[in-house]
Design a protein around this nucleic acid. Sequence first.
DNA 1: TACCCGGAAGCTGA
DNA 2: ATCAGCTTCCGGGT
Length: 470
Amino acid sequence: MKVVSLQLPSGPSMERLPLPFSPTELLWRYPLPWGPPPPSPLGDTKAQLPAGLPPEPRLWTREDVVVFLKWCEREFDLPNFDMDLFQMNGKALCLLTKTDLGERCPGAGDVLHNVLQMLVRDAALLGRMPSSPVTPTARAAPYPPSPHSHPPTPTWAVDGFHHFHSAAAAAAQPNSVTLSPAPSVDSSGSPQRGDAVTYAPTYAPSVPTQVQAASSGSNHSDSDEEAQFAPPPRSPKEAPLTSSAPQTHAQHSHYRAQHREFFPNDMPESNTNGRLLWDFLQQLLNDPTQRYTNYIAWKNRETGVFKIVDPAGLAKLWGIQKNHLSMNYDKMSRALRYYYRVNILRKVQGERHCYQFLRNPTELKNIKNISLLRQQMSPTRVVPQAVVKTEMKEERCEDEPVDEDMPTDLSITASEPWRKRARPDPSSVASQHDKHRISALIGDNLMPKREPEYSAENYALNLRSEKCEQ
DNA sequence: TACCCGGAAGCTGA
DNA sequence: ATCAGCTTCCGGGT
């Protein structure tokens, strides 16, 4: 993997860790490595590690761990930890899962876990991405809105984020995307303001772009756009939010209250924290402040259709999220294509960089749970590839319901069976990819084949029903 | 040329 | 050790 020189916040700003944001909060705070970070609401005086504490938690001694925990108690208004349960060095501490931490410090495990994860990640980022000034560049113009763009459909207030965002707004909590602290209990997000297609033409770059490109050696599709990289889209409304949050103890407490509201201890594993690509995309798409619409934006939220506005930029974000800094759109799109076969996504034909979620966030969220049942489920119906190709030649339009007999075997081109591309002998294909076939089982089991639920229509329907459930 | 596709193998964290 | 979910690379089609 190529090492990228990225301009990351360094020095004091990195030591003043904006706790208790998640590891990936770094990304959301500093949405791009090639732009300076926005002011951190938590980043000032209070939220810095005690002096002398190494920034890399895994290097901490037992004493350091104690110092850290004491600091957390103060800083985040956490109940006092039982230090006997933390007789360990930093490395061991970092190996504790959220559940482990929750057992040791009920009510604060998730906070502690997130803090640790962020520290670890920050340390890793610092270690591998020395800052390197490069020539500032600026995007000449925002991505032109697609002529097919639909007007905003500000109706998706359907999930558990609803109250969170309200609270967050009340607390002037900026950057509330918080991919990782796990609001992705339901990753859909629920913007309180206008959403959907906003290609964010309002952003006026005011800071130099800092990028030393990962793509200098990576695949096509990066370099050209890279030369145009501008700072992340930031809607004007973000600025006041970002800058108006002095770091106070009360706000730590407030954050904590929100945090716990979102991540009650009895459901610590019910999210993917943006670690999964679909979740990552959903959270960017549903960012309440619409900061990522220069990267990815809904074209039609009701039907789950979205457009990757800046493929290279989005891929980089994803790469940062996953610590694969050589990520590019080619690779990321491969991951997206794997979602075809499990009917999470499909390509919108004829439109570049346009995809459609075939499942709403709640369904996606449930995939994880349902997967636990896969062994109890009936085996996958295997459809011979040749048959599928014959059966499904007709191209579907974007909003047309998917064929009820959508093939789901992984060896089958489920996403676009109308493609007439020559394929290897189906029998040989069928004997391959056992590993991925397991994934297909999960997908299959999620999708009763007689229910056309993966249609755009049903996507919207599900959204509405979710609203009702709220 | 960029996008798009899916096969194949490998990696990583749980 | 197993598995999910990618990541990486690739050859080929549009």
